[in-house]
Amino acid sequence: MKDFFLSTNRIGFSLWNEDDYDEAMELWANPNVTKYIVASGKMSEEQVLERLHKEIDVFNKFKVQYWPIYLLETGEAIGCCGLRPYDLENNILELGVHVKERFWGNGLAIEACKAVMEYAFSTLNVSALFAGHNPNNTISSKLLKKLGFQYLRDEFYPPTNLNHPSYLLKKQDYDKNNIAY
């Protein structure tokens, strides 16, 4: 069983490590999960390993990552949700979530994001959170708006070679009790 540093009613947050190869492959080698994350729509085994190592490196340097998330009831890996550096000079981190397709549509993404947002603003004391999504991913657009993010601009995202709608949520605008479900 994994150790969790953060949890909700249904989700536990852990840390990626070198032993998580199978979980990383199940998540990021699935083209239904990655179709909006990379230009080709599918990540190779090498790209998945690079992504896993990148998450570990980001944690070692900045103490954040897109943390692996698990169902507390069963211990099953459901995806990842977390933070990465965006604009460190202005104390802004980027929020992201990737969920395995069999867990889509049951509120786990919004629950995970809300926990990470609370952690970012209350524990890490960030000044704002940035988020973006592939312009073809309407579900992520709806999720960010429900979470209270405000459209900022379209921003070029090299992994997809597309301009992604990008959003910001400032700490003073964050109200954990007023997030639409």
Rank of each mutant, 00 (worst) to 15 (best):
L143H: 01
E55P: 02
K35T: 06
E46V: 11
H98I: 00
S14R: 08
G107L: 08
T8N: 06
M43S: 09
N125L: 13
M25H: 13
E101M: 07
L93F: 14
A131G: 07
I110F: 12
E50M: 12
L124G: 03
K100L: 15
V33G: 03
P135S: 08
Q150G: 02
Q47T: 02
S7T: 15
K100D: 04
Y174R: 01
L88W: 03
A112I: 03
G148D: 04
R51W: 14
N30M: 08
F103M: 03
D173L: 09
H98T: 05
Q172R: 15
N90Q: 10
W67R: 13
K142A: 08
R84N: 12
E89G: 06
D87N: 15
G132Y: 02
A24G: 04
E101F: 10
H133W: 02
E155W: 15
L71R: 05
K114S: 11
I139P: 00
A109W: 03
Q47P: 01
F103A: 03
F156K: 05
L108M: 00
A131C: 08
A115F: 02
P135F: 08
N32D: 14
R10Q: 06
N137A: 04
A77Q: 13
M25Q: 12
L168C: 07
D57L: 11
L168K: 11
S7R: 15
L147T: 02
P135M: 02
N137D: 06
V38S: 07
Y174F: 15
L27S: 06
D19W: 06
C81M: 07
K63R: 15
G107C: 03
N125F: 09
Y167D: 00
Y174E: 10
D20F: 14
N177A: 05
M117K: 05
K63Y: 14
G82F: 12
E46Y: 06
D154F: 11
S122K: 14
R102K: 15
T34Q: 06
D22C: 07
A131R: 08
N30L: 12
